[in-house]
Design a protein around this nucleic acid. Structure first.
Length: 408
RNA sequence: GCGGGUGUAGCUCAGCCGGUUAGAGCGCCUGGUUGUGGCCCAGGAGGUCGCCGGUUCAAAUCCGGUCACUCGCCCCA
């Protein structure tokens, strides 16, 4: 949980300084929204949605991804009317009906960002840059995002027919899936991992070469801007994505140590989605991060962030006296914003101190009959072992000056 | 949808070619310190061996079923 919080808070911080605001959307939506948005023939829509009927026989679906819901909310509430541009991020659970395995569960969490109303290749570059900065802020190093362009929707027919004729010519060398995709969605065949298909796929014309002049220029500019921003990336000529709404730039980032499910983020531009969902044509792009996968990757990091929880002071009773006094002290310290450990249990001093040590407290405030008599606690620094009296009244102030510079 | 694996103490696991009171490490508790943690030492608590059935004089161990979890393929975050 600490890792989730860290990943989410870091995202809030990095996304916010890039001008994004958080938006919350419902966890379920009308099924039709995803069918129209993601595309009928995609795996997600055809076999991975959690779909059910409500009491009025409406078909609802637990969201398998975040973008469609954000676009729907934007259209429905006219969020894009007062300004022509908007940047939002979200985080929350997503659902896909499939066999769980490492780095993949049926309910999982994504952090996503969406940027509406900006067609500049700078927007693509900034988005990839921001995500790279985010991953680095989380402690990952050597992040290299894989980037490709699948062109405008108008380029699609030329791409498909060129790929189809190539794939048809080598039909016998392709696996069943690829043979099927040749007809339905030839671009998807390109990222088939089946070893037998590789020679044929390697020999296929690169998608970028099949794009219109304008689309190629756009992609070149995205790459140039990434270099201007000093972002490490690599061009992945065969990278395509599983959602139909993508156009032009697509990208994904993989991290080591995650086995088969190593993509921690994916995204791209989707300039037609607003129209597809009944809005006016709006350039847009976005990405989403898989929180569980990031969390796993964070775990295997040799020098990860320090996520141990910290307690400023643990109040330790030394004898039968002092429960009421301790309760009041805990309350006044908490009112000052201090993290206080006190469990109202009567236990041996030894056990109380051991507990204080276990929860990683900076100080232990020791309280017994003689301390109450003198109106002070014995404040013990648990790292140095130094101990001395501090009056009840001075305790909160004293703790604040000593814990102000500490992490977390 | 397809194919593997595993279910034994709070956690990680050993034991499993059937045979006495089911073990280890870590964690937890107590004591060594008549009101003081971390390190060390000594002791202690804790288990229907996933569940149901079968074979047998005897089952954690063999067989069947069932449930749960897990890994891989497909696809994706």
């Amino acid at each position: 949980m600490a890792r989730f919080q860290f990943l989410e808070e870091t995202a809030r911080r990095i996304f916010t300084i890039h001008g994004y605001e958080e938006l919350r959307t419902p966890v379920f939506e009308p099924t039709d929204l995803f069918v129209r948005g993601i595309g009928e023939v995609t795996d997600i829509v055809s076999k991975e949605m959690y779909t059910f009927k409500d009491r009025s026989e409406r078909s609802l679906t637990l969201r398998p991804e975040g973008t469609a819901g954000v676009v729907r909310a934007t259209l429905e509430h006219g969020l894009l009317r007062q300004s022509s541009e908007m940047k939002v991020f979200y985080m929350g659970p997503m659902f896909r009906y499939e066999r769980p395995q490492k780095g993949r569960q049926r309910q999982f969490h994504q952090i996503g960002c969406e940027w509406f109303g900006n067609a500049s290749p700078w927007a693509d570059a900034e988005t990839i840059a921001m995500l790279t900065i985010y991953l680095e802020a989380c402690g990952f190093s050597g992040v290299r995002t894989r980037v490709n362009s699948i062109g405008a929707r108008g380029d699609r027919e030329a791409i498909n027919s060129a790929l189809r004729s190539h794939l048809e010519a080598h039909r016998g060398d392709l696996c069943e899936d690829c043979q099927r995709r040749t007809a339905t969605h030839p671009m998807r065949a390109l990222d088939c991992k089946n070893p037998g298909c590789q020679p044929t796929l390697d020999a296929a014309p690169p998608i970028v070469d099949l794009l219109s002049e304008a689309s190629q220029t756009l992609f070149r500019e995205v790459c140039e801007h990434l270099e201007t921003l000093g972002i490490e990336f690599e061009i992945a000529p065969r990278l395509v994505r599983g959602f139909d709404y993508y156009t032009h730039t697509v990208f994904e980032t993989v991290l080591p140590g995650l086995g088969a499910q190593d993509a921690v983020l994916g995204g791209g531009r989707y300039d037609n989605l607003f129209e597809d969902l009944g809005g006016t044509s709006t350039p847009a792009l976005g990405a989403s991060l898989g929180v569980e996968r990031l969390s796993l990757a964070l775990q295997s990091l040799e020098a990860g962030p320090d996520l141990r929880s910290r307690v400023d002071v643990a109040i330790c009773l030394l004898d039968e006296a002092g429960l009421e006094v301790a309760a009041r002290l805990a309350a006044t310290c908490r009112a000052e914003g201090l993290r206080v450990r006190f469990d109202y249990q009567r236990r041996s001093p030894k056990a109380a101190l051991r507990d204080a040590n276990r929860v990683n407290a900076h100080f232990a405030a020791l309280l017994g009959a003689s301390e109450i008599e003198a109106q002070h606690v014995q404040l013990k620094d648990l790292e140095s072992g130094n101990q001395g009296p501090v009056s009840f009244a001075d305790l909160p102030g004293r703790l604040q000056t000593h814990t102000a510079d500490s992490p977390q």
